[in-house]
Write a protein that binds this DNA or RNA. Structure first.
Lengths: 361, 361
DNA sequence: CACCCTATTGCAAACGTTTGCATAAAGTTC
DNA sequence: GAACTTTATGCAAACGTTTGCAATAGGGTG
């Protein structure tokens, strides 16, 4: 490598600078500078400027450093729209939150939002940007909207939902696609998620170990993930001769949980001594109802939630729960998607969960 | 309007269709169709096709309907990258979550995530898309990155943070910009937020009305929003001769709140009988510490939070709090930003808050 | 029929990059 | 010193839209 002075590196073509300056840049209030302007300033062609900024090894190091310094000095940014058009690549990943509700509404589940936030982190770390979307914008034709429309290079769907037709269609049409959901689901597309069956077993076994015998499952097995948890639940119950179980099929909200527990206590009295709630929000709703009726947790009823949201630690009693590793999930989702962009086949992944023991059990 | 048959509307140029079909579309695995292809199929020019799809009134209705039907039939989508390049407009709004922490980390505050979710809703309703970003991606030069880089037409910043240099720079450079923060802050940029001073007064007055006299403020007045709440707090205290106040300066997390209350009880005993927490998460952390030491809420200590997150209703005792209207906030933020895009001057807006009375006070 | 007016469409340029290929300069080998 | 290789750069085309302007057709009017 030549040992030349750094001064010469920063020298630029004065004549061209003046020409550009008085040619308009001074008068027009910060008219956007384009690559050609930068190149002219430096006295090189746009090809060279482009390659220099993109660290193309064809370019001499001296030239590259000079151009990058010049770009920084003038706060120059490449026009992403032009790049994307030329490259047929956006460097954007769309995250699609898959509602069940038909009505347009904002998301309220802190766990889902945490997942999105962790995906964002992983996406950025790979140098991609995150387009936050939902079925309202994307319509039914996800492939057309995102891929053909050149809005994103791939899609991460958060939540399988109850009907998976649109996911399947998008996958069939060749959309690079990863879904956060239950990885045991068979399909054309890759699914990343926790081992819900095992988690269901673990939680239920824990309740049984703590002495619970008349167990309740709160949630809606119409969701693929919850179905697996319920399966684990049932399997463990059946292994315990004296144990009995019943299912409270509810929406996954704390309010629904609160109401159904209230109602159950009212009509049947305390007919159970252990609850496996399909999410922490559901568990906390149930907890509220129990406490209001002076049912002691964990003495009268043992309670286990799912997700390990921040509130699980703050509630009193603090909530025993199954921790889903959202941080890792985000990373795996993005890795799987980028692998598809490089041509790999989609494949699913199952993440380990962890029982976090707290006071409620 | 001519009363012609609908059949003719859907008729297309068979010859051109065949030509396109055998010219490659059949063999190439769904090579992306472009506007020119669609135009050829319909037997019109790309200009006409473009105008037809964009509902340009120059185009005869018959032609427009025919082209839109054809586009839908073939799942045609315009290439957004090309449109953006040509139009110099992205139809994207960037949402930038402004961390204090230097370390890269995901967001955990359910309230902030709710705000983002509600912004998303409002953005979509205006036909824009949402680019979710953070300081890690955008660097210091927000104008260069988002605006010059043609990634977005405007920026919504969630959280003023402790240092506002980057916001001010972006505003100075002409970035269309709206900030979620304290609207009383003077600056070059528009701020939308709750009336934090009034909210602080309301919450404190409520505590006083409930009989509390030795009050605690939990939060960090280095944040503009919290400073206003604290100011309201102090003003109300000073109006009540027998009342005294002190400040617990902590990070805005439930854990910090839990620890500081524990520590205070340990070192000073129960030296207070009312708490105004700067957020619900802080309030819930405090609540946990109090309950663990058998301090009765609201008998011994009255507690008021801020935000009205979902958990406020589920905790027991349920949490009295100041409700921030995030739904409206999202809408106003987006409206103010779009107004700037149309050339209006930025102006701030103050939103009403509401005291939600529950059991904790 | 000449004229103008309106309604509808097409032509071609432009938006700002990136990159295959050609070119030029400099170094290497026989 | 001719022939070849290597290194660094420039030329020009292409990505897929949108739109100002020109053009055409049709209809009405004097």
């Amino acid at each position: 490598m030549p040992n030349q002075s750094i001064d010469s590196v920063l020298k630029i073509n004065i004549f061209n600078l003046l020409q550009w300056f008085f040619g308009g840049a001074l008068y027009m209030q910060s008219k956007k500078m384009k690559l050609a302007d930068l190149a002219k300033l430096a006295g090189v062609s746009t090809s060279t400027a482009s390659r220099a900024l993109n660290n193309n090894p064809l370019i001499k190091e001296e030239t590259r450093i000079k151009l990058q310094a010049l770009a920084k000095k003038h706060n120059f940014s490449l026009n992403a729209a032009a790049s994307r058009l030329r490259l047929q690549k956006t460097n954007v990943i769309a995250v699609l939150i898959n509602f069940d509700a038909e009505t347009e509404q904002s998301i309220d589940d802190p766990f889902l939002l945490k997942v999105v936030s962790d995906i964002n982190l992983a996406v950025n770390r790979q140098g991609y940007e995150l387009l936050l979307s939902n079925s309202y914008m994307a319509g039914d034709d996800w492939h057309g909207y995102f891929i053909d429309g050149r809005r994103a290079d791939g899609v991460i769907v958060v939540g399988q939902g109850k009907q998976q037709a649109r996911i399947e269609r998008a996958a069939r049409e060749g959309t690079p696609l990863v879904v956060w959901g239950d990885p045991k689901t068979q399909g054309e597309y890759a699914i990343v998620g926790s081992d819900n069956y095992l988690a269901g077993c673990t939680a239920t076994r824990h309740l049984l170990d703590r002495g619970a015998r008349r167990l309740l499952f709160m949630g809606d097995p119409a969701h693929a993930e919850l179905a697996e948890r319920y399966r684990g639940f049932c399997d463990q119950i059946s292994k315990e001769p004296e144990a009995s179980a019943s299912l409270l099929k509810i929406d996954i909200t704390s309010l629904a949980a609160y109401e159904v527990i209230n109602q159950t206590l009212l009509s049947e009295g305390l007919s159970f001594d252990g609850i496996f709630a399909c999410s922490d929000m559901v568990a906390l709703g149930a907890m509220k109802a129990l406490k209001e009726r002076y049912v002691s947790i964990p003495n009268d009823v043992r309670l286990v939630g799912f997700d390990d949201i921040a509130m699980a630690d703050i509630s009193s009693p603090s909530l025993t729960t199954i921790k889903q590793n959202t941080r890792l999930a985000g990373q795996v989702l993005v890795d799987k998607l980028l692998a598809q962009l490089k041509g790999d086949k989609p494949d699913s992944a199952q993440l380990d969960v962890e029982l976090v023991m707290r006071q409620s059990s």
